[in-house]
Design a protein around this nucleic acid. Structure first.
Lengths: 259, 259
DNA sequence: ACCTGAACACCGTTCAAGT
DNA sequence: ACCTGAACACCGTTCAAGT
């Protein structure tokens, strides 16, 4: 359970070197260490979790990552919880930051809009599989605002786009719920699959069954159907499955809109 | 962010009383403190999380809850991580523990079986909304075994039941994926809704906009559609929505089976 | 204005020692 | 056999103090 292959607590040494030799001794120059800011701290936290996982994220480790003592972070974030919240917000904010990224105009239908939005959120989940569960799991600020669209701006956009395209108020809300629950389920599973890179190889060997409690190896002997379908179950058709399930959802919404 | 309204660290006092006055001084008698066991520890952890939330679960607190020092727990669980895994397993194991609970026999179709299973998992999520995210989020032991059916036995049962009812191998695997992603998305949203009991009341008041960074109050002034749909969005039709979405899924699976 | 040292109250975990 | 005391290396967070 040790997740710390860190090259020792030499932040103190770094500080001494900086003090003695001056900033010019840093081969990367001062441009590499712009002044602290909430945005920079949150971005560093996201990058850190991408590399080392959520449980490894610590105020102290993030501090040394930024070349600063952990205490300095408290000028910009109210605490670890606020930091996590900031990460969720910055992730979700990236959704609309590229309106040139193919965002359908008002000439196209709501289906094109939902396709665009779904793929945008999926890109977030795939780029940051270790961060995504945070989006899905933390309580929303507004109790009625369900994940994974944790941004008021995005939800506002979602609802007004659908209403402008012919949905009733009721239909838009129903569509929002169906859409977000669909996305949440799918992307959480995808992220979990990626997260299991450290998985132990399945050993169909026969070293006796003296395993009492440790050794979480998978023993398929008692599960014939799993053994039979193992290969099929491990196939990864995430892309195709996502497209198909998304189309099914859009079809269903369309039927409800017409009917 | 203080979640500790605990009545002080008086476990030491308890120990002294026990030692001085003997076990008979405990008004509840010794039957209240059966010997430690992995099962009992895990059950206590689930109950603890139900009451105080996942972040409050600590080896030390769980120890004092059981009238024991934290170090004693390490005889039965390999560490905090193993404890969490145990909680997931014990939760999932409760699914099949009541076969008299209406489990459809082989006379009934696969639809009845999936209905039964879906409602069983949903009951787990509703009874333990604070624990459920654990089931959904932790990596599965087998990389290809997706949540939320974190039990090999349950997945084996799922697949063999569907194959026995006419599904092809391929169809059963596809149904398993669609079903688990549906359940995961829906139940995680439901659990998150319940988890936001501490939500701040929406204050549509007008105290000036001098809020700079703190004060996570929801300000709907910039989001007209959210304001318009707020009431509708906060309506809770979880039961009806679940039934409807489940039926949609079953219909879809049926179409794929026939087609 | 921005960062840090030192301190506090907690953690998970190990292990020799008690009974 | 089962539990504990004491210790270790970490946490998050506060605050007076440095520059």
């Amino acid at each position: 359970m040790r997740d710390d292959a860190d090259p020792g607590g030499d932040s103190t040494v770094d500080s001494i070197v900086d003090t003695v030799a001056g900033a010019a001794a840093d081969p990367r120059g001062p441009a590499d260490r712009p002044p602290l800011s909430r945005e920079r701290i949150v971005a560093a936290a996201i990058a850190f979790v991408d590399r080392r996982g959520l449980t490894a994220l610590t105020m102290r480790r993030l501090g040394t990552e930024l070349g600063v003592e952990a205490m300095s972070l408290y000028r910009y974030v109210a605490g670890r919880d606020d930091l996590l919240e900031g990460m969720v917000q910055q992730m979700v904010d990236r959704l609309h930051l590229d309106p040139g990224g193919g965002r359908p105009g008002s000439g196209e239908g709501w289906q094109a809009y939902l396709q665009w939005l779904a793929h945008g959120v999926r890109a977030l989940a795939r780029d940051h599989p270790q961060v995504f569960p945070l989006i899905a799991t933390r309580h929303p600020a507004a109790p009625w605002l369900r994940p994974p669209l944790r941004s008021l701006r995005v939800v506002e956009d979602f609802l007004s786009t659908l209403v402008a395209r012919g949905f009733s108020d009721e239909g838009a809300v129903a569509a929002y719920r169906a859409f977000s629950s669909f996305l949440l389920g799918h992307l959480l599973l995808e992220a979990a699959m990626v997260g299991s890179r450290t998985a132990p190889a399945v050993t169909p060997a026969d070293e006796g069954r003296s395993v009492s409690m440790a050794s979480r190896e998978v023993d398929l002997r008692r599960y014939p159907m799993l053994r039979r379908l193992e290969e099929r179950l491990s196939e990864d058709h995430a892309d195709a499955e996502f497209e198909r399930a998304l189309e099914d959802l859009l079809d269903r919404l369309e039927r409800e809109l017409d009917g």
